[in-house]
Design a protein around this nucleic acid. Structure first.
Lengths: 189, 189
DNA sequence: TCTTTTTGGTTGGTTGACCAATTTATTTTT
DNA sequence: AAAAATAAATTGGTCAACCAACCAAAAAGA
């Protein structure tokens, strides 16, 4: 029950942070979106920053959950291909997810107090990708696998950004080229 | 003279938008940073959004200028390598530049009114990279060159983000791997 | 009854927009 | 070239709107 309302607040905040940005999303609005009053937000959270903290935490878990769900739903041979496809589809299906992501990136960059927390979101994604990558690069050093994961993650976010800012952007072709680049790396090892 | 003060406002706004974000950087503060009073900001700009517009415009020009300067300063053979190095160095030398960039990305994503303008910043970077790439991929279709440029740009931004959020991130290794990936693409064509 | 949850309204402070008045620069007239 | 007139630049402050934080009291639940 308590968790219920708290969860609703985090969800409402995530949505509004993505839509209007952290600063412009007021606590009253968040409360309204969650179907409660503003006072209750302060009952569960000391201040707005604490709400943001929980939003960041939730965002970092979400990707891990999705990744593990995929891992269990798809045979190992097609895992890399499916992950790539799923990531590409996510741009169209959950633009708010990326909007929130970029909002949090910006907050992390300008607020050292949150940099570490926002970094967890990236780390989560990176280690998820690394796990998929390891079986495909058996001879590579762990650090190189991490580097490739970092690069792929950067591409996923960056290409999503370009597609969202410019609907004419050819996301499919970009992913085709990206796959080619990734594959070439595999053969070389 | 008129341009002098206007330019100062844009510079001050760029700095503060990068440091505190668009919403939290007040017009009074921007004016103070520029060494004037808030009323003058409204003399040159109708509202805060117009200031942001000019900041975006200036940001999109800056990269082009830097790119062209590099093109004239470095022999053609080392151009790709130098551009890569310069981009890597920029993370350490001008973190504010990336902070502003991500702030603008977030604004563009949540504000359709600015999406197109922010997209210009990306397009500028992309076409700059494309020009460097073309001589290296003579047999590739133009669309593929653009795709590679989009991927590289995404990597530059994403890796910079990771380095800034986490100083322990091994940027050098990531760039090493990235170069390897880019090179493999060249050989294949 | 006693505690937890929830409300609704208050408060001190900040902000963007706006403007009347003053100063500085430019042009015109003598 | 000095003086007068006009235009441009700049100030300082006002104002309504908004917000985060807070709290006393009501409602719900145990």
């Amino acid at each position: 029950m308590k968790q219920d309302k708290k969860q609703k607040i985090v969800e409402a905040a995530s949505k509004l942070f993505a839509e209007k940005g952290y600063e412009k999303a007021s606590i009253k609005e968040i409360a309204k979106e969650a179907g409660i009053t503003s006072g209750l937000v302060h009952y569960y959270f000391q201040n707005k920053e604490e709400v943001l903290s929980d939003v960041v935490l939730e965002a970092s878990h979400q990707y891990t959950r999705d990744m593990q769900a995929l891992k269990q739903a798809v045979p190992e041979g097609q895992l890399a291909e499916s992950a790539m496809q799923a990531t590409k589809d996510r741009v169209q299906k959950h633009p708010d997810w990326y909007r929130l992501r970029y909002e949090l990136f910006a907050i992390g960059l300008r607020n050292p107090h949150f940099a570490e927390k926002v970094n967890q979101i990236i780390d989560n994604g990176q280690s998820g990708i690394s796990n998929l990558l390891k079986p495909m690069m058996p001879n590579a050093e762990e650090k190189d696998v991490a580097a490739v994961a970092a690069i792929l993650l950067a591409c996923f976010d960056g290409l999503a950004l370009q597609k969202m800012l410019n609907p004419d952007f050819d996301l499919d072709r970009a992913y085709l080229v990206l796959e080619k680049m990734a594959m070439s790396l595999q053969e070389e090892e």
